[in-house]
Design a protein around this nucleic acid. Structure first.
Length: 423
RNA sequence: GGAGAGGUGCCAGAGCUGGUUGAAUGGGACGGUCUCGAAAACCGUUGAGCGGGUAACCGCUCCGAGGGUUCGAAUCCCUCCCUCUCCGCCA
């Protein structure tokens, strides 16, 4: 959510920011409604002040055993009017709230302007892509050959977009989760284990709702949502909370499965495990002081990159341009690894600064000094990392001419000493 | 799932026979007096959101959430959520 006062005061800046994201939003219609609402607020408040005065008067008269009937009779009309105005006010503020929730965050001034993914600049590259066999196999071919990835089984028990990992494949998943969490703990993140289903307020808090409703799995009976990322439970832990100034910064890491309907992406990545409905991810979430959030974003990005460096996997970092930036983000870096089998860069991490956008929605504030006015915190998060794409990269990048897959050395201790995946 | 108890300010805890109660009292925290310093004691301060105003300030709302009754509700009624105790069921 944006600061409503900012929208009033500097609509031009808001219009520009929204336009940069290529989102359709009528700022003027919003402002018109906002003004209408403020008129109603003033009317009802005036009436209520009247009513409060009369109430005191009635109370006084009754105590003095005097007749209050005339005032009471007079207040009946006022009361009815208050009810009418409040009703109108309620309906218009609901409209405004819905509009406000659909207004995207504004890109940070440092974000390059662009239309879409093709305009995202590469800002960093690390490692060398090793020499590959003539025709590198895709991860699903390797996975099936080694018997560690069973897509048919996944399709049978659940459906398309679900995978079964078996044997050393299952072990690989577990090993990666452990390695990732260990790295983040060393980086100073507090490890959390959180619910995988959350309530509606949490989904609104981090910005998944109402905009992305179609991409979420919903348990209607209990109105629970399967989390699309650990960001949701971790960021919402402090929903409607005023933090003490010295609590910041806070940083958390959590492993969770992630559930996504991928409603808008039919036809993309239809094979393999690079786009599935359920996947595993280790996430980092930071609560930052506003003045530090951008330096924190760089640190967060570095913390995610470190995971790939530990695994000795080459990567590149791209900065999302305005047009490719997600709804809630003010600035975002994606980390991508090369998958020679599918000949694609895979997004294994996304590190974003939401500034106070989520904090406003979720009501996460901080009080710097004892009696200071609470202000909104900044929230950030980044994947560290998304498992299936890392696995795809490892399988494709580390495949040998003899059909084996070399396990990155840092991972071997987590794999019970296994150095190669082989049939 | 069944039975009961309860959800009030930073915490504890009154109020709940409807009427200056945003809320007693205690604790904590902060500021001050006292002291060489500290403790104790004493005095004072101590919620958030919204609207109006350059500001000082003024007004409105909030006692789990949402409705209702009433001139007026923390206080009465209804629905929902959550917590605790007991029973049942269960990994």
């Amino acid at each position: 959510m944006l600061d409503r006062k900012l929208v009033r005061k500097d609509p031009e800046r808001v219009r520009k920011g929204i336009a940069g994201k290529h989102v359709d939003f009528d700022v003027d219609a919003f402002l018109a409604k906002d003004e209408e609402m403020r008129d109603l607020i003033q009317e009802t408040e005036k009436l209520k002040a009247e009513r409060n005065d009369a109430s005191h008067e009635i109370s006084r008269l009754k105590k003095e055993k005097k007749d209050a009937a005339p005032i009471i009779a007079g207040m009946k009309a006022t009361s009815i009017r208050i009810r009418e105005v409040d009703e109108a006010l309620k309906s218009i503020s609901e409209e405004i709230d819905n509009l406000a929730l659909a207004m995207p965050n504004l890109p940070h001034e440092s974000v390059p302007y662009g239309k879409g993914a093709e305009d995202n600049p590469v800002v960093k590259s690390w490692g060398e892509i090793p020499e590959m066999p003539e025709k590198p196999l895709s991860h699903w071919e390797i996975g099936e050959k080694l018997g560690i990835l069973d897509l048919a089984a996944g399709a049978k028990v659940s459906g398309r977009g679900f995978v079964v990992m078996r044997g050393d494949g299952a072990l690989l998943t577990r090993a990666l989760i452990n390695l990732f969490l260990d790295i983040h703990r060393k980086q100073g993140y507090e490890e959390l284990w959180v619910p995988f289903m959350v309530n509606r307020a949490s989904m609104v808090g981090t910005g998944q709702l109402p905009k992305m409703a179609d991409d979420m799995y919903h348990c209607e009976r209990d109105d629970f949502f399967l989390i699309p990322t650990a960001e949701v439970p971790v960021t919402n832990m402090y929903r409607d909370t005023i933090l003490e100034g010295d609590m910041l910064p806070m940083k958390f890491t959590a492993y969770t499965p992630c559930f996504r309907r991928e409603a808008g992406s039919y036809g993309q990545d239809t094979r393999g495990m690079t786009r599935v409905h359920q996947f595993d991810k280790v996430e980092m979430v930071r609560y930052a002081l506003p003045e530090n959030s951008y330096s924190d974003l760089e640190v967060l990005l570095g913390d995610a990159c470190e995971v790939l460096e530990v695994l000795d996997i080459p990567y590149r970092v791209i900065e999302l341009c305005t047009g490719d930036l997600s709804f809630a983000a003010a600035k975002c870096y994606d980390i991508e690894t090369w998958a020679p089998g599918v000949e694609k860069w895979l997004e294994v991490s996304s590190c974003s600064n939401f500034e106070d956008f989520q904090a406003r929605r979720a009501g996460i504030k901080l009080r710097r000094e004892k009696r200071a006015k609470p202000e909104f915190v900044h929230t950030l998060n980044g994947s560290g990392l998304a498992l299936p794409r890392v696995i795809a990269t490892i399988l494709e990048m580390n495949q040998t001419p003899t059909g084996k897959v070399r396990i990155p050395s840092a991972l071997i201790p987590f794999m019970g000493g296994i150095e190669y995946l082989e049939a």
